[in-house]
Design a protein around this nucleic acid. Structure first.
Lengths: 165, 165
DNA sequence: CTGATTGCAAATGCTTTGCACGCCA
DNA sequence: TGGCGTGCAAAGCATTTGCAATCAG
């Protein structure tokens, strides 16, 4: 895990007059141990491997903290839970495409898209703060190969889109 | 309410071998009685004014039906409930900007944005199905006038962004 | 008739909270 | 030492579901 992250949270904690605790350290390091998207529950499980006494409540509370500190981005993938993106700290603007066929989530970045969103926003008299683009799509090659082949490692989060309830 | 809507749902119901009921008619007409965004609960309240015996369960079930029939679009505004957009039936591609200052939701359309999203999607080997852009922004003129003045009637949904729990 | 639909209440699943105890600064 | 932080269980909330009664075709 990037030690800069731990540091940035520590700064944030100091600035806010909060306290650095063993539990927070554990949860933060669990959050940034991989660069895959994760859910609150997945983070809870990871943190429990580091410290079996970790409680769900503290995970949720620390998650809010990390989001507030801009270390983590909370995104909505259309399932019924929040998804957290640890790569946000490193690469602030990227968006997500969910493949309807295989349920995989593909991250992408496009500076034109970002720029255009900003223009549109300003044209309406607003100052852009955050934009999120979510695309649902079918795999074009599905028919050809019979399976969804868009499994390019670098573009994958390794995470399945959970179904709606 | 646009009578074409009722008709389109009737067709859908026939095609699926379902049944047309008094409750469904009531809920559908409540849904399209205004062209503002609404939540399940807001629809429930509206429907109860037409028929006080309307039940929440039937509202939810009919909502799914309308979404499946492509009469309604389900969008996520970052509060903790689904928002439904009745204008989708008429104007399929528009997106939403939520003003952080006043909480208002502004709808907008931009064909460039749409086109660019499609390109990006295809470039990654997918066939676009649906895209949603959600922008959070500050009101640029807030400081000048002291209040969020972007209350241009035609662009407003009249709906406040509900806070996160 | 007969299976789709409804209404109610109970169940779900994620997330938040109240409160007593514990621990950081 | 004074509070902030933690853990647990309970509460909250939007949404879904089981089931018996009802109704559309």
């Amino acid at each position: 895990m990037d030690s800069g992250i731990q540091e940035r949270l520590t700064d944030f904690i100091r600035r806010k007059g909060l306290r650095q605790t063993r539990q927070r350290d554990t949860i933060v390091s669990a959050a940034f141990s991989k660069d895959e998207l994760f859910s609150a529950d997945e983070l809870f499980e990871r943190a429990r491997k580091l410290d079996s006494k970790t409680s769900r409540a503290t995970v949720y509370r620390t998650l809010s903290l990390m989001v507030e500190a801009n270390l983590l981005r909370e995104i909505d993938l259309g399932d019924n839970q929040a998804t957290y993106d640890p790569k946000f700290a490193v690469k602030p603007s990227h968006n997500h495409l969910a493949c309807i066929d295989c349920g995989r989530v593909v991250e992408f970045e496009d500076s034109h898209l970002e720029l255009l969103n900003d223009c549109v926003t300003r044209r309406m008299g607003f100052k852009p703060v955050q934009q999120s683009v979510r695309i649902e799509a079918n795999c074009e090659q599905l028919r050809l190969k019979g399976r969804c082949p868009n499994l390019i490692a670098t573009r994958l989060t390794g995470r399945r889109l959970r179904k709606k309830r």
